[in-house]
Structures are given as structure tokens and as C-alpha cells.
């Protein structure tokens, strides 16, 4: 789905200095994958994500989306239709004055016929569970609902992949749950490739693959269990470990028979009850 080869991106800071935000990244994301990218602020994860739909183009190296190079300016809109992007602030990505008009914004830009737009909007709102709010004004919705509207706006363009750049950072726990549930369902039921950038480890745990970034480089890449069981390494990178994993490791050290790569409370309960 997305193939990155030797990607480097250099920013020009206002003082005229050059800043390497992404430094020689190689990455392959297969269709239907659910990838979480973690790393603390300034690790380059957002810059990397912006390359996935050609909002940024590589300083050097190449990025291919569904076989199209993002440096190919002539096929920019094709790329952006294939890879939808959801941003952090729900208020600053809703364009229209009603929910359904906003969901229609993408297909309208693509020049889809009105009857087809109607169908797509209804489907997209249904997919995120916002069909009841179709005619509501966006500013009256909760943060989680707004973010679901933003996802619907992307879905209506029928993308193969959705990139979400810290979509839950500004939400309360209820909103986070809503958004994450929606993302998981879309990945599982609709087979949409998901790239989730986050700094919540509980969210990364839900992904099929976790990528850890540091100083513009990928430093860890594997299944959540493989990544999160390396507690010491993560702490070196100043990243949190899911509390339940930390507990499991302490217990394991004390001789309690639980596996040190336990990621969820349910898993822990099952292991303890099993014994």
C-alpha cells in the first residue's frame, strides 16, 4: 500500500538552520494493515505521516502510494483520494456548516455526481455512527463526534488507507474510546489500511504492528507484544509502557507465572485465573 525508501526530509527553521525531521526511513505498509506509529514530540512521526498523502514530498528518497510516486505532481489528487488524512484538532478540519455537507466536501472536490455523493455521504456517516446527526451544526457536537465526522469526510472519498495524526490527543476518554472503536471497526470490517500516529500506548497496543520513531529514524518495528515487552528499551526512549505490561514484568520477576509481554487487562485476568 505504502512503500518508503530512504526517505529524508529536511526542514528549514526560521533561523535558517537545517533540521532533519526524517532521516533515512525505509518502510513497507501492506494493504489492510493496522500500524501504530509512536515516539515522543519531535521524533519525526508527524512529518513521516505527511509524506503518505503528499502533503510533504521527500527531500531525498522516494515514497510510493499504491504504486504511484508522491513526487509525481500530476497524480497528486489521485494519491490524496487513496490516502485520507485525519488531523489532531477536530475543529480545524471541518469545513462546512452541517455534518452532511462536510462529509460531502471531499467527493464534491473529486467531481462525483450529486446522486453518488448522497449515497457516499449516507454510507460514510453510517460507518462512523453519525447518521442521526447528518443535519446538525458541527460546533454543537462533542470532540469525539467531531472527530468521527472528520473520519466520515475522509471515508466518503473511498480511500484505501487512512492516516490519523494524533486524532485523540484533544479528546476526553469517552471521545478517545469512540474514535479508536471506529478506527478498529473500519480496519477489520472494511479492510481499510490504517496508520495511527499516537502517544497513547493503550491505543498502540490495539494495532497489528507498532513502529517506534526516535530522531527521525525507525528504532523499533514489530508486533505490539514484541515492542512493548522491551520495557527497558522503551524507557530509554522516554516512552511509556502500558501499565499492565509493567505490572506483568514485575510479577514475572517475583515468580508469578504471567508472561512478561501481557498487554491488556483481560489477558492478565485470564492468565491469573488460569493458574
Amino acid at each position: 500500500m505504502i512503500r518508503v525508501e530512504g526517505l529524508t526530509h529536511v526542514y528549514q527553521t526560521r533561523q535558517g538552520q537545517e533540521l532533519k525531521a526524517v532521516d533515512g526511513v525505509d518502510l513497507n505498509i501492506a494493504p489492510g494493515e493496522f500500524v501504530a506509529i509512536i515516539g515522543h514530540n519531535g521524533s519525526g512521526k508527524s512529518t513521516l505521516a505527511k509524506h503518505f498523502n503528499a502533503l510533504l514530498t521527500p527531500t531525498s528518497g522516494r515514497v510510493w502510494v499504491a504504486g504511484i510516486s508522491t513526487s509525481d505532481a500530476g497524480r497528486l489528487w489521485e494519491i490524496r483520494q487513496k490516502v485520507g488524512m485525519v488531523f489532531q484538532n477536530p475543529d480545524n478540519q471541518i469545513v462546512a456548516t452541517t455534518v452532511e455537507e462536510d462529509a460531502a466536501f471531499g467527493p464534491e472536490n473529486l467531481g462525483v455526481a450529486p446522486a453518488e455523493i448522497r449515497r457516499r455521504v449516507d454510507e460514510a456517516l453510517q460507518a462512523v455512527g453519525m447518521e442521526e446527526y447528518a443535519r446538525h451544526a458541527p460546533h454543537l457536537l462533542s470532540g469525539g463526534q467531531k472527530q468521527r465526522v472528520a473520519i466520515a469526510g475522509v471515508l466518503a472519498m473511498r480511500p484505501a488507507c487512512i492516516v490519523l495524526d494524533e486524532p485523540t490527543a484533544m479528546l476526553d476518554p469517552v471521545g478517545r474510546e469512540e474514535v479508536l472503536g471506529t478506527i478498529k471497526r473500519l480496519n477489520r470490517d472494511e479492510g481499510i489500511t490504517v496508520v495511527l500516529i499516537t502517544h497513547f500506548m493503550e491505543e498502540a497496543v490495539e494495532a497489528g504492528r507498532v513502529i517506534v520513531m526516535e530522531n527521525g529514524r525507525i528504532v523499533m518495528d514489530g508486533k505490539p507484544k514484541e515492542v512493548f515487552s522491551q520495557v527497558r528499551r522503551l524507557k530509554e526512549l522516554h516512552l511509556d509502557v502500558p501499565p499492565i505490561t509493567e505490572l506483568a514484568q514485575s510479577l514475572a520477576r517475583e515468580g508469578v507465572p504471567v508472561t512478561p509481554d501481557t498487554l491488556t487487562v483481560e489477558e492478565m485476568v485470564q492468565q491469573l485465573l488460569g493458574n
Binding site: N53, L55, W77, R80, Q81, G84, M85, F87, N92, Q93, V95, E100, E101, A104, F105, G106, P107, E108, N109, L110, G111, V112, A113, P114, I117, R118, V121, G153, V154, M157
Partner: peptide, 16 residues
């Protein structure tokens, strides 16, 4: 966000 959703003015644009 608008650019990410393929906004490019009214060229080839349709309406719901």
C-alpha cells in the same frame, strides 16, 4: 485539511 481532501477551487467541483 482542505488540501488533504483534494480541494482545488471550483475546477471540476460538483455539489451535494
Amino acid at each position: 485539511a482542505m488540501e488533504a481532501r483534494c480541494y482545488r477551487g471550483d475546477e471540476g467541483r460538483t455539489k451535494l
